[in-house]
Design a protein around this nucleic acid. Structure first.
Lengths: 342, 342
DNA sequence: TTGTACGCGTTATCAA
DNA sequence: TTGATAACGCGTACAA
């Protein structure tokens, strides 16, 4: 007695459809792919059977045959950070509009996790990679790059490897904000920043230093605040000193939250007791009183540009040399800096 | 002259390794998969060659052969919403720890986009699906379910189909918050909610109504505010009335932002001119003055539980009947309700 | 217009 | 301990 080879129960294949419709596999394939060298009547019947059986082409098999998966990887540090969330949203929109699917990976800024994820993505044969590089050496990416995987770094450049990169004006944005605080008469301005291994932290610090040095102000900064509570602690410490800063610049949105918490806990009032400015705008910033003065970076555009760059590489020429795009930031002057409500 | 069949240049396969190491494909396969019925010396040599060539197993081919992709789909409405972002983070963590990869899809609450994405995920042969059901009929999911795709609904039940579901206490949480406002003496409390087709909106409204009706208060609610600015408009309108509400409950975090903006624009002070409470805690809530009184939902646990439920189904028995898990919410009493600072 | 045969990269079977 | 060979589900080349 001939035994049917075992077939996956839930999954209907071309063969099942072919058998049911009484035609060959190839005919079904043609109908599915809309090649129209096929008898309309046959086509109709096949379509009907396919629909009845709930046939869904196996993209894995298609990808194995062809050479693309129409899948990209997006590696960010932590999706619960609104900045990365906004980035992911922009990327997802572009990907969807181009018929691509997106695998989301969170590195937690850990190069080891990044390395592992890159291997996974490589094994999954993603067509391209968008990534916010983890700090430290990124040469583990070189092998993939050499294997022909297009990749675009977002928000900061990858170290130890040359890739397309899309960033924002970190130094200039911060400098303008600090200069604005100076223009309000502040002579003692502090800066609280994230991990100093991060390119963004260094550039923002640089902007702060440019502004303070140009005016001969004292330098006062704390780095390494990668969480809200670390920033809160650092700020609290700064405020303990008898001659504490009269103005503060927060290096990103998480730090802003911690700094505001500290100022509130210390019972200080913005901008009278201490003026505030920070990097990264967010929705609540204009709902607060005083409204927050912040450097706005074009997060959506950052994600969109990076994704478009990737897809262009991916569907067009991969040959041209790595490009480096720097998007402008803008100081949104509201009230926490000391400006009057409009 | 024999022509080598065209080989993908960047990608080294089992065959390449086998050829280079002078063994058969199967031997390499054994080494890669750690089956140890293989001569240690051969194994060592093969490993070396594989490393040198940068061999990376093609997971597509593996999945085609075996029957799982070790990939799940996560469908949310909009990743830039902190609630979904937190959810995605929790899910990603569980997935990573189990060696799974996550495809992120954003439905924008549009059933049509949801349907399209489900087809894509089905074609990609994901092993399971976690989803925040878009409003409206979800029977387009039934086919996949019948094909054996395990799925877990998060945050709200899917309509027209029975699946595992993980939710939170929406009604009870809201009721408690409104009762708390009532205990502060408020007799005119308004509720602003999201789209009324959403299960969460209806349950939260129900909680509001339970509290107000039990006390014989007048009902005052506005629904359909699915954006921050819509909520702001609605709130502004409420405040225009001469006998405007003395307390407001915001149905989610986006609405909270809009409501706060409106209150600030109207020049009103919380909690003196109007008291505030809302659904969904967020980091800044305790940094503001007054601190915000909010219903906290265990977002991390929501995502984790859902993911674990899915993986259990996926790796264990799929047979048992759909479970419905309801996680507790908690009222975090701070100051915006009228309570004194502690 | 339709069908057959082969290959994509892997794992599984079975024989050597 | 190893190696041919057949699947997996699909597309492509080539015949019929």
């Amino acid at each position: 007695m001939e035994r049917e080879p075992f077939r996956n129960p839930g999954r209907v294949t071309l063969r099942d459809v072919a058998q049911e419709a009484g035609v060959s596999i190839k005919t079904v394939s043609r109908v599915i792919n809309g090649e129209r060298e096929v008898n309309p009547e046959t086509a109709a019947r096949v379509s009907e059977v396919a629909a009845k059986l709930g046939y869904r082409p196996n993209e894995l098999a298609r990808s194995l045959k062809g050479r693309r998966t129409r899948t990209i990887g997006l590696m960010i540090a932590d999706i619960s950070n609104p900045f990365y969330a906004a980035l992911a949203r922009a990327v997802e929109e572009v990907a969807r509009s181009r018929g691509y699917t997106m695998i989301l990976c969170a590195s937690s800024e850990d190069p080891e996790i990044e390395r592992e994820y890159v291997e996974v993505l490589s094994g999954r044969r993603v067509d391209g990679l968008l990534f916010v590089p983890a700090p430290g050496d990124g040469s583990h990416l070189r092998r993939e790059q050499e294997a022909g995987l297009p990749m675009v770094a977002i928000d900061r450049p990858a170290e130890g490897i040359r890739t397309d990169t899309v960033m924002v004006q970190n130094a200039a944005g911060t400098r303008k904000a600090v200069e604005h605080l100076i223009s309000h008469g502040h002579r003692h301005i502090a800066f609280i920043g994230d991990d100093k291994r991060l390119h963004t932290t260094r550039k923002r610090l640089q902007g702060y230093l440019e502004a303070t040095r140009a005016t001969g102000l004292r330098e006062c900064f704390r780095l390494g605040c990668s969480t809200t509570s670390a920033a809160e602690e650092a700020m609290l410490e700064l405020l303990e000193a008898p001659d504490h800063p009269t103005a503060i610049f927060a290096g990103n949105n998480l730090i802003s939250t911690g700094v505001l918490e500290a100022i509130a806990r210390a019972g200080l009032r913005i901008p009278y007791d201490i003026a505030f400015a920070g990097f990264d705008d967010f929705p609540l910033a204009s709902a607060l009183r005083p409204r927050l003065t912040l450097v706005r970076q074009p997060v959506d555009e950052l994600g969109r540009k990076a994704a478009e760059l990737l897809f262009d590489r991916l569907e067009g020429e991969k040959s041209s040399s790595p490009s480096r795009i720097i998007l402008p930031t803008r100081l949104i002057v509201r009230e926490s800096c000391g400006c009057a409500p409009s």
